[in-house]
């Protein structure tokens, strides 16, 4: 399973479960739509840290890294590359 698929699976199961959606588009705006909000981001950060072995710093919690699935994948891969 790719990084994108793992994140999408998590979001669909844990965050977007009430939204009556089959999938998330890679460039779908997750912030503006409210799919990721201030409460769900806590769980998302824990998921990213545990699944990909990265540290999500507070200063990284900005739209560039969390706007959509593509930006999250880029963030994870960049972070893994820096380890």
């Amino acid at each position: 399973m790719t990084v994108l698929e793992k994140i999408e699976k998590f979001l669909m199961a844990e965050v977007a479960v009430d939204l009556d959606k089959e999938s998330l588009q890679p460039d779908e705006d997750l912030l503006g739509s409210g799919i990721i909000d201030s409460m769900t981001v806590i769980k998302l950060v824990l998921f990213l840290e545990e699944t990909f072995g990265i540290e999500v710093k507070d200063e990284d919690l900005v739209p560039e890294n969390f706007q959509n699935l593509n930006s999250m994948v880029e963030y994870v891969e960049r972070n893994q590359g820096n380890r």
């Binding site: 912030l31 409210g34 909000d37 981001v41």
Partner: peptide, 9 residues
């Protein structure tokens, strides 16, 4: 700075 970005604005 950008309401469309939700809490990350």
């Amino acid at each position: 700075v950008d309401k469309s970005k939700g809490f990350m604005g």
